[in-house]
Design a protein around this nucleic acid. Structure first.
Lengths: 351, 351
DNA sequence: CTTGATATGCTCGATTCGAGCATATGTGGT
DNA sequence: ACCACATATGCTCGAATCGAGCATATCAAG
């Protein structure tokens, strides 16, 4: 096979080359910031490591740990991240993956102000909560404090019906740029799909979409802070979760969505577990992250059947009932199956 | 709920804050490059848009289109990408998504040389090949020219058994840092999993893993160019696909892997199709990307059953047999189902 | 020793899905 | 006009998967 298909109106190759490949020196210089969403599960509560700015003042704002990336010091982005996380929080990261790179100007620049030329690269790290032996800075906070509408463990959170749904309906009715080729879905349809309104299914992975919809509707404190006009249009904007510095809440939303998606097709839950655990503890950890309750017997069948775990031989007594067998992660499963996640039943599709 | 769980050895919050949040001004400045892997399917061949450096010289190297990101000019990364792709190739991108941010120093700096200090953000764009009306620069090239071992459409590519497998076995036997906590899988196990050796299953999504393994083993021309010692150890290094400039082949590998993964759970195939198409054309497009042949009748059943398409009412004759009904993408499916991809059967899991 | 709690094993029915058979309807050759 | 052939399309059957519930095991606490 030796295809080479040129576009119509093929130009002289010399020109093509010169136009497409500008010299590296004419890049604008910007700073690179690394943001880490460090996630753990503590007492069945999914938590993220946050630090607090001005913790004693009234206008306290939480932020994700972050640090600059220096290409002089570090050969790779992830290496840089691990180094300063260790230096500054005492935590040795285990599993870490890159999430997304954000470069949007958040806060509108004042007239004459220069845009904050910082590009931030978000990372997701998963760690065992009890492994924070060396943790010297920062606190673990439930991620549902920042995203209360994401907490479906007991039932549909009231905040959706009481606060979010009515305001999104109002927002959808406001005059707005109609559905366009770029944005072919109407405001009300987006609200319906994101939040499962009017009988639509709830998709627990759409964490970022939900956050951005609320931001766009001006219902998120950060939107007001950033000077978005939609936010200024509300006279009774409710408090929807704790705000965070800069776009850190958006990064955390990305991290939650990614964690929820990935747990289903890669064995990443085990990064959050101690070496030995009972199947029920494993199930509770999965539920802390995904939300819905799972069928206990079937969860056991799936996890064991997939070869994800093996019994240690020990049991854990003091469980309030029959002692539970202890299991450990079977690393060999990675050598056997291509995508061994904790498969959970998809929510029933409504038509 | 109001959890706030501090790490052991909680410090004074003031110090915590100061350590973790350094001022933005002490970032190192770097340049941001945007790289676009623009993918289409032309005559059942998956292609990417490439430009050629020094097309007439002997040391010609292909490259992905790229351009600098200027935060002064562009509000968002994706906006910047669309703008210069349009300016420079005449192509109006439809679907685009961010892939990954690479900052590794590729070429080892000469003594006294400064590291390139460029961070490149890779994007994946999908487009209809016949929509290249305005294409003024660049050529479409089959992506299997860069990754011949990925082309499983006819059968297992010979290059795996003839070139790759024997050399990876040799590489696995060379003295190497043993499996460590950071890299718990041995060389031979990695080779086995990546390339489906010794009866392991082939996972068509692991495109990047395979490329990086070959790079690490020094079997990729770029590894030699970058001065990797593993590459210098070969006296008979075979030519495994066309090389590309800088780390562009790695970005293309990421793009292929992402496309293969995403096509299964989001309706992105339709970005590659004309407005009207037959189900067989759709199937051929999916197969061009995923590789294995699909069962025709079942493909039809799945696609129709998922509500992904609707008949236009017309038929396409001249198909060499009974005329085929024409279909179009049902955009409304996005409002009905959470993850409507082209589900294809997973390859049988071997135990 | 009883009660209650949790752990664990098993079964049944609905649904999904791989695979093949059968039929429909064109094109091109004689 | 008719036949051979190619592709399109519809349908069915059996295996595997999965949701849901029943039944049993084994501990702690009173």
């Amino acid at each position: 096979m030796n295809m080479e298909l040129s576009g119509r109106g093929k130009p002289s190759p010399d020109k093509s080359h010169r136009v497409l490949t500008r010299d590296k020196t004419d890049h604008d210089s910007v700073g690179i910031g690394l943001n880490a969403a460090i996630v753990a599960v503590l007492d069945n509560e999914p938590v993220a490591l946050v630090v607090r700015k001005d913790p004693d003042s009234a206008g306290a704002t939480d932020m994700l740990p972050f640090g600059p990336f220096s290409p002089r010091e570090h050969r790779t982005l992830e290496g840089g991240l691990r180094a300063w996380v260790r230096d500054q929080t005492g935590l040795d990261l285990g599993y870490a993956e890159q999430l997304y790179t954000f470069a949007d100007r958040g806060r509108l620049p004042e007239p004459g102000d220069v845009a904050p030329h910082v590009v931030s690269i978000g990372y997701l790290a998963l760690t065992e909560a009890s492994a924070d032996h060396g943790l010297t800075h920062g606190v673990w906070r439930s991620w549902y404090q920042y995203f209360p509408w994401e907490d479906w463990r007991r039932s549909r959170p009231d905040i959706i019906a009481n606060e979010i749904e009515p305001r999104l309906k109002l927002w959808a009715e406001r005059p707005s740029p109609a559905a366009t080729p770029q944005r072919p879905v109407s405001r009300s349809d987006r609200a319906r799909m994101c939040f499962g309104l009017d009988g639509a299914a709830w998709d627990e992975e759409k964490v970022l979409e939900r956050y951005e919809l609320l931001y766009e509707a001006g219902l998120i404190e950060e939107a007001l802070r950033d000077g978005r006009s939609a936010a200024q249009a509300w006279t009774d904007r409710p408090k929807l979760g704790l705000p965070m510095q800069s776009d850190h809440r958006r990064i955390l939303a990305t991290a939650i969505g990614r964690t929820r998606a990935k747990i289903k097709y890669r064995p990443v839950v085990f990064e959050l577990m101690p070496p030995d655990f009972t199947l029920y503890e494993l199930q509770k950890t999965v539920e802390a992250i995904l939300g819905p309750h799972l069928h206990k017997q079937n969860f056991r069948r799936l996890v064991e059947g997939a070869g994800l775990v093996e019994p240690t031989g020990d049991v854990k007594t003091r469980t309030g009932g029959r002692p539970a067998k202890l299991f450990r992660f079977r690393r060999e499963v990675l050598l056997e199956r291509p995508a061994p996640g904790v498969r959970v039943s998809a929510p029933p599709v409504r038509n």
